[in-house]
Design a protein around this nucleic acid. Structure first.
Lengths: 176, 176
DNA sequence: CGGAAGCTAGCACGGGTGTGCTAGAAAGAA
DNA sequence: TTCTTTCTAGCACACCCGTGCTAGCTTCCG
């Protein structure tokens, strides 16, 4: 639901009321509620849609025989390298913050967080001989941290710089 | 303002209304407003207090002649290794999310974010011969990412494990 | 003692909120 | 055509909100 995202980006998740979203979507409140019985439904649907979008983009990625370039390619999808991904990350951050006090959202966030971690792990597997779990968590933290910094200050983290940091990290993994 | 923090942790920043905070502090609304003219004042004060607490803890740290152990010592203060720091990080995350749509809070967050980055930079300076800016941003992202993951899932990130990851990172910095 | 200053309590206003509900329009099947 | 389903619009309720305001209480200084 594009309207929900626009409202969240402009006014924040707190102010994404049913009324505001309906106005943004140029719908009446009643119409909106015909599709989404409650506000929680609306928000959960939106979050799911964002997650599904990311998943889809990643699985559409071309295969690459070289584990390192594949890893960089995949991880780059998780960084806000363009307007679309910047939007996704801001939405994601808003929901993550709310997940701290909303068990339903927390479950959703956890699910995709775990998937992300597993993804990092499988990318890392052929690339390091260090402790895999530890390296996974280190990479995962780096990617999320970078994403947040870049989402808040895109001007300080241009795409090529993000790539550079990512490459540095992957090149300094503990190896044999 | 401990009451504000309790409400934010329990119900979220959105629901940290003047009424809720007053109730949590066992004060009347009027009394609270005698000290904080507006809700924004209350929140800004709280955020400043949290930031000041972290600053104070860090500057109270004992000196260490060894740059590596000093770095690990300082950075450990930025991770949720105990209940107090866990609280701080959750509060911080809540405010960060709101800073996306609140320019006043954004200014505050930026300020301490920059300070943190500079801190990382000066810790890193004697430890790596890699590109200092890039290493700074990489470390900064790692610390923030770790902090967030640990704040959301403390059970998966026990203190010794956080330390371990930190140590791994510092040991694999690009060196001569 | 008197008076001022600091503090507390609470009311009231205007406004925004989620959701239950009904009434009607549009569209498609019989 | 008529009936049924799907959709739209909007009202109404009860609730919580920030803030302006006043009235009373305490505390302390002169």
């Amino acid at each position: 639901m594009a309207a929900v995202c626009r409202v969240i980006l402009r006014d924040g998740l707190d102010r994404a009321s049913v009324r505001q979203v309906a106005a943004e979507a140029e719908l009446s409140m009643g119409s909106l509620r015909h599709y989404f019985a409650t506000q929680a439904d609306l928000m959960a649907f939106t979050l799911r849609a964002v997650i599904a979008g990311v998943d889809k983009r990643i699985s559409a990625l071309p295969d690459s025989p070289d584990p390192l370039s594949r890893a960089v390619l995949v991880l780059a999808e998780l960084l806000p390298l363009d307007e679309e991904r910047l939007t996704e990350h801001r939405i994601w951050l808003a929901f993550t913050a709310r997940a701290m006090v909303d068990p339903d959202l927390a479950a959703l966030c956890d699910e995709s967080r775990t998937a992300l971690r597993n993804g990092c792990r499988s990318l890392l597997e052929p690339l390091t001989t260090g402790n895999l779990d530890r390296e996974t968590d280190r990479l995962h933290a780096l990617v999320d941290g970078l994403a947040i910094h870049a989402a808040l200050h895109p001007e300080s983290y241009p795409p090529h710089y993000l790539h550079e940091i990512l490459h540095t990290h992957m090149s300094t993994l503990p190896k044999v």
